[in-house]
Amino acid sequence: MSRQRSATTTLQRRISVIAIAAAAAAVISVAAYAATPVEIQKQRHEHYEQLGDAFKTVRDNSKGTPDYAALDKALAVIQKATENQQQWFPKGTGPEAGKTRALPEIWSKPDDFTAAQKLFTDKVGPLAAAVKARDVDAIGKAFREVGGSCKNCHDSFRAPE
């Protein structure tokens, strides 16, 4: 009994250590986010990598028998991106700040850029509906539309590799 209790205490202690560490990491990353344009570029890059990872999951599961748990997770990442993408491009984080494929047009043509971002958000709507409805064919169709909206923005606002 007492051994079990002490095991529980150790576990609780471990959890609280992890929680503190996680909180500290969050604070540090927020601090870094506010810190330098280069850091913002790096974070932005990571956001898009997560988005790429999520898109791959959707693509992999857009035919045959999808893994809906994976699709739900990927969709959550994509929807979060539609909500947050406006904040990923603060002024001063273009090519003048460091190596990035983000083109200056993002800041010189803000209306066009916002419209391109909005198109992405708009196209994610039907994808979310298709995933919710567990409709494979609709997922495939909606995914192609989302892919088109990515390309639309990249063609004008991302430098070629």
Partner: peptide, 12 residues
């Protein structure tokens, strides 16, 4: 797999 996860080979 391409950088956006949109285009990929069939075995990816």
């Amino acid at each position: 797999v391409d950088v956006d996860g949109i285009e990929s080979g069939p075995l990816s």
